[in-house]
Write a protein that binds this DNA or RNA. Structure first.
Lengths: 212, 212
DNA sequence: TCTCTTTTTGAACGGTGTTCAATATAATGC
DNA sequence: GCATTATATTGAACACCGTTCAAAAAGAGA
């Protein structure tokens, strides 16, 4: 069949990614298929495979966009909080709240980031893991500001602990697996986590053995 | 075709569940299918659908077993720790370590518990959500012992915060999304979480506003 | 104009979960 | 012991799925 001039390869990539993103606004990825995306943008399944390599890699490209979007939201939330000058913990709380807000407003896109698994120990491509560790770096910088005498490893540990916690709360809450009693919501859990953890974390000028 | 007398329905259920569990010891659920299970136990796909209702519900039955197994592991770990008399926090640490250990040793079964989603807001059956909230109850009991003046809601909150944290650490670590620097492992992150969080949580005889 | 290269395709392959009429057995009533 | 009913089980069919690949048509270069 003919070579079309409708779109360049770049435009086609974006077309496919947009189609998936549009779908994820209202339905989970499990209800989407390569063939549907192809139908939606008016190309054949094979074209998309040529372009991305596989259906999974198309979804991975969508995940990259999602992570970029999450990063933007976090940065914006932290910036706003910093301008209000309510302290570093408030800034981290704002970031966590933004993270939860994104997960709640875009559950299907958010889930896909963590539920997509490439086969048989193909590790994440660097451009993808880079996006995740960039998020951790944002946190580590704030933690160092909060506790200037902390070592880099100390901050790295703490960043992973608190973000795993925030992430776990978001995950389980979206899946309705927290069985929250009325009146307690995610934002309160997040604040409880950050407040209690960081209060004690800051107390020690030298990290305890468990933070090496 | 004939009604067989090879197995009763109960035996058949167990046969199917065992087949899935056996598979999950070495490969993820995404590489398994209803037809494979049927082939493995020598019945037709339709028989399994008659028995469980759908493939998803078969997997859900497997998840119930997994959760029972996790509960047993947690109870055993806490019992051992209690006999060593090292305190309530150590007991909770032992439970968290057991949780992580199970996830690490049985990653595919563990993942399936949280990655299986039933369609279109069919909520989890009660016998399933009951198993999860029973796990929370274990924690709440220990937290009340740790801080006798805490309210039930206070303990419920704290249990959810720390277990979301432990769960998040397990999830992200299994997915290689934590990018731990050398020398820091999951057990240290878990201990850091529990120590710092609970130390400050216990400080307040009245819970702060964020713990309501 | 005639190649050569590149993009795109439709058809095919081997899989998937699920439905359902047909069926052979077991249980029941006589 | 026989006829009937009820039930467990099936294979074939359905509508999908991701992926492969030879064929073909359009553009680029000579």
């Amino acid at each position: 069949m003919p070579r079309r001039q409708d779109h360049t390869q770049e435009e086609l990539r974006q077309l496919a990614i947009d189609s998936v993103s549009r779908h994820l606004r209202s339905a989970p990825a499990s209800q989407l298929s390569l063939r549907m995306v192809a139908r939606d943008i008016g190309y054949s399944p094979g074209t998309l495979i040529n372009l991305f390599g596989s259906y999974s890699l198309l979804l991975l490209a969508v995940n990259a966009c999602t992570l970029d979007c999450i990063r933007d939201q976090l940065l914006q939330a932290m910036d706003n909080s910093r301008r209000a000058d309510a302290g570093v913990i408030a800034e981290l709380e704002a970031a966590a709240a933004a993270y939860f807000h994104y997960a709640q407003e875009n559950p299907h896109a958010w889930r896909l980031v963590f539920e997509l698994h490439l086969d048989a120990e193909t590790p994440l491509p660097a451009w993808q893991s880079g996006r995740i560790s960039a998020l951790f770096s944002l946190l580590e910088a704030r933690l160092l500001k909060l506790k200037p005498r902390a070592t880099a490893a100390d901050c790295a540990s703490a960043a992973r602990v608190i973000w795993s916690g925030v992430h776990g709360i978001c995950t389980l809450l979206l899946d309705n697996k927290l069985f929250l009693s009325d009146g307690a919501d995610a934002r309160q859990l997040i604040r409880s986590l950050l407040t209690h953890y960081l209060t004690d974390w800051c107390r020690h000028t030298q990290p305890p053995a468990s933070d090496q």
